[in-house]
Amino acid sequence: MHSITLVVNGVVREATVPARTLLSDCLRHHLGLTGTHVGCEHGVCGCCTVLMDGEPVRSCLTLAVTADGHEITTVEGLAGPGGALSPVQRAFAECHGLQCGFCTPGFLCTATALLAENPDPSDDEIVEGISGNLCRCTGYQNIVKSVRRAAELIREEA
């Protein structure tokens, strides 16, 4: 067993995990943050995407022990103080960018990082940015629209 310390959504969290524990399982089952979803456990679907030191990574392809000492942001940490939805979250609601919601946390984390790096992405850049996340419900059209709208919201509110 390994004792690890993660800073999750700004809060120092400690866990004792076997070495083989995936970061996704650590977040979900050891820390109770079930907003991060697990869709394939081989790194293809992107449902489990979280931000590690600000960069989106697959939490199912990361060992919790490797993440020791790093900052992790999950979907639970995207909203602002007091629970106000972030521009990305609001845009997804406004543009119907989700249906069953299972892939959504991965898209939200990915889009949040994408817009932090590139606040005014072209449609091609949006598509490339979210190209590693599967969605079985929406056909992606409204997800692209949501990311575009989120960029607008961020600019308007800057």
Partner: peptide, 22 residues
């Protein structure tokens, strides 16, 4: 009308099967 499911699903507060029974 905007979906009433969305606020919980957008904030990680949805409850899917594996989120239950820790």
């Amino acid at each position: 009308v905007q979906r009433r499911e969305d606020p919980r699903l957008l904030t990680g507060q949805g409850r899917y099967l594996d989120d239950l029974g820790p």
